[in-house]
Design a protein around this nucleic acid. Structure first.
Lengths: 244, 244
DNA sequence: ATGAAGTGGAGAAGCTGTCTCCACTTGGAG
DNA sequence: CTCCAAGTGGAGACAGCTTCTCCACTTCAT
């Protein structure tokens, strides 16, 4: 039985201030501040977890997080009842930030640059943050937050695409569902190549974006160089197999 | 100690006839045919393994393969010393087929259709065969076969791209390393969406291919419809998380 | 009919994860 | 300085998953 508590009720408040959450037992007075050393350790855990999750993804064990933070596992579990609690505490803001990107993009006066910059920003955020990407894409943790963010974004993306199509800037057979999917795939690419060249995804975004126009003469030059043959080789060989 | 035998020598002969390989202990007379029931079981195992690996990937356990084949695990291990041996027996031909695709494409008189059909065929093969894709991409099993196939293919792909560029049919800032990478990513997409719509990858290949041209007026229409909003939703939710 | 060949599946052995427990240490109030 | 509630670390319980072994039993083919 992994989570000893039954999961009742919505798992996230509107904006749980990420510093106040997460005390554990005899929690009669939730406002009572932690002892200084305890608070320091709590920060260390948060920092280590953030680094290690963004870098290596959510499948990193809490033992590893503890090691990185220089504390024992016991200490981690004293502050965060479960791994899920830690992950959610860490990612609320980011999920929220994601949800806000589409809004900003919709305000761009030019439909085309609005759409393109949305895709760029989205990819940018997700390419650099493996943990966040996993959270959004696989929804193992923080389902509610993610579902909410998605619901908020979907109509905005739809509008973004349709506006650009209405202006004749995007091919008419593109559907708005293509956009998240493209980002999904692009960030997968980013993740795969991240050791060799963390920014190759920009090449492929550029390629796709050129493909999205209804017609064009000339081309937007690819923004970053391609993988070198041996970078490609290494990337494929290195790409961590999850199975034995 | 997983593989009890030390791994000595190259792990694959030129073309190990997939039906003769794989007997085990007192194997004094390797030509001696299996008893009829044993041979029947062997075929069942191969069939089950093929189905389950192409469908679900190489991380399926041999217990599961045995269950699917309707035999005990012991029987599987009697025929194939290790999982690796089974996997390789199963995939030699396919890896070989992959290696041959580029050759055929290079013979196409039109550089552009040669390149495009290469990408299409490659994606086609890998999109429909999760096991094969994992083998090529992650090289957990059958490293030698895969390394060989890659070495054979790399110069061919290079030629394919450069020929099309020389003919002015492909943008000049594309590098040949982009091609395998694009296929890699595209087939990842295929895999992700395979339950909702096993062929959406064609949309994105088309998009990318339009992006690969140096300039164009008009566009090649996207060959298959986009994911519906709820297909997208389900795809993202369903997409198997590897971590807890 | 007989024994060599083949079988199934329980379980050994190994891994990796989450989370608990408790003997010990430490901060800080008095 | 004293003292104890608060905090700690990390061994290890527990669960889940593999791959692979072993052997009492069954079956085939001579």
């Amino acid at each position: 039985m992994a989570p000893p508590e039954g999961d009742a009720g919505p798992r996230f408040a509107a904006h749980p201030a990420s510093s106040a959450a997460g005390c554990r037992e005899g929690c009669a007075d939730p406002a009572r501040p932690l002892r200084r050393d305890a608070e320091r350790n709590r920060q260390r855990i948060l920092k280590a977890a953030s680094e290690v999750f963004t870098e290596c993804g959510l499948e990193v064990s809490l033992d590893e997080v503890a090691r990185q933070a220089g504390v024992g596992v016991g200490t981690v579990y004293r502050r965060f009842r479960t791994k899920e609690e830690l992950v959610e505490a860490l990612f609320v803001d980011r999920v929220d930030a994601i949800a806000a990107v589409a809004e900003r993009a919709a305000e761009d006066p030019d439909p085309w640059t609005g759409l393109v910059s949305f895709m760029e920003q989205m990819a940018e955020m997700l390419a650099g943050d493996l943990g966040l990407r996993q959270m959004l894409m696989f929804a193992t943790y923080g389902r509610d937050q993610v579902a909410y963010a998605r619901q908020r974004n979907a109509p905005l993306i739809e509008k973004l695409v349709e506006r650009a199509q209405a202006a004749g800037q995007v091919r008419s057979d593109l559907r708005f569902t293509d956009v998240p999917f493209i980002i999904f795939v692009l960030t997968e690419a980013a993740q795969i190549a991240r050791h060799a060249r963390p920014d190759v995804w920009r090449r492929y975004l550029a390629l796709i974006i050129d493909g999205m126009r209804p017609e064009r003469e000339g081309l937007t030059p690819l923004p970053v160089p391609a993988l070198l043959p041996d970078e490609l080789e290494r990337t494929m060989r290195l790409h961590a197999p999850r199975h034995r």
